[in-house]
Design a protein around this nucleic acid. Structure first.
Lengths: 205, 205
DNA sequence: ATATTACTGTTAAATAAATAACAACGTTAA
DNA sequence: TTAACGTTGTTATTTATTTAACAGTAATAT
């Protein structure tokens, strides 16, 4: 398995999604410039990315969607279902859970954690909720390798360290803080306040 | 005003936030390596970024926090309050509104839009909600230049075009689609499904 | 005074990413 | 059969971003 860059992985996910949609529409082949347009990238970049995963299309018919999907999935997606945990079941946490609930993907949020007793031992959006104290036990038991942090700013660093203890390797962090963690843990920040500032900045230019 | 890269703007926002927090704690000076650690970047990169905005610290005392804040704000933040709209007041939309409500920033969500009559003409998290049909009128009236899209996938492109019509220049898009818009409109995608896939991928490596 | 230290600002090098250029190939039309 | 076309895959070029190197500077200690 080649080592794909962060940006490439991101784009491959986009292609994968667009290809799934195309497949549903009944399309079986597509040219790079068509797919590129849907994905919002240049055709060259798309071909370059596809080169990286070892799939080849035909100059005559373009890419065969089902085959391309297989190739991308082979690189990106785990063969078995991947379990994810979420910490923090407030407004945002529940919205995220609802967002992912029902998607028939191979990534599923299967455990929630909160300190609020009202939420513990309930099922929310198809996901069972535990006490914060159970993080390590449950994550290890379910072999959870990725987690979502949706707790307030002040708790985020502490939770991140707990998750790290529990063997988590990747974190999607919604809290507006830069988590300080070992480099071996992959962190993706979805910092809404920050992003909105950035958007506002470029909207003014 | 210099032309700062996307990445630089993003990091400057982080520095700004950390500096605000430091100021609240009563600190008045800080060295690049200290701030860099809090921001999760290298000290060199921080100094490089700061160079770009024309502020200078002292080799002896480091950066003077209040002055540095002013310099960053001068580059990044609008002098007057910047109004933002949100389209789509579902679970996610309301969570976003709640998230931003009460933050004493100069960016404020002041208008919500939805097609659900139940939500129209109500105030949610301090933000008045209008019908989708009012997008152009309200955005122009309040000089709104940035918007958040939190509608389902299938509506996103249509809404984006409406916003574009209404004079919006920047969009924070939560819908899992790549919006096709003129280059003059800045789009930042916060694609949770995609991001989680990416995190899951790197968590496996 | 003067050397030392610990920092900053800036230029230079290295790395990463995007774009362009073009050969190779199957298909179609003459 | 052969030439022309439009596409892919790949290598080269350019551009952007990060990292390193180092001179300049104020404070401190000798």
């Amino acid at each position: 398995m080649a080592d794909l860059s962060k940006k490439t992985v991101e784009r491959l996910c986009v292609y994968h999604r667009e290809l799934l949609e195309l497949e549903n529409e009944g399309t079986d082949h597509i040219f790079s410039h068509q797919l590129a347009k849907r994905a919002g990238v240049s055709p060259v970049q798309l071909r370059h990315d596809i080169m990286g995963i070892g799939y080849s299309g035909s100059p005559a018919r373009g890419y065969e969607i089902s085959e391309m999907l297989k190739s991308i999935a082979k690189q990106l997606l785990s063969t078995k279902q991947q379990n994810v945990a979420i910490v923090g079941i407030g407004n945002l946490g529940r919205a995220i859970m609802a967002y992912f609930h029902g998607r028939r993907e191979n990534i599923r949020i299967i455990a929630g954690f909160d300190s609020d007793l009202q939420k513990i031992n309930r099922t929310i959006s198809g996901c069972y909720c535990y006490s914060m104290n159970d993080i390590e036990r449950i994550c290890k038991y379910h072999k959870i390798k990725a987690a979502i942090i949706a707790v307030p700013e002040r708790e985020a660093q502490d939770i991140a360290e707990k998750l790290s203890q529990a063997g988590i390797r990747g974190i999607m962090n919604f809290a507006p803080v830069r988590l300080v963690l070992p480099d071996s843990i992959y962190v993706e920040n979805l910092d809404m306040a920050l992003t909105l500032e950035k958007v506002a900045y470029f909207a003014r230019q």
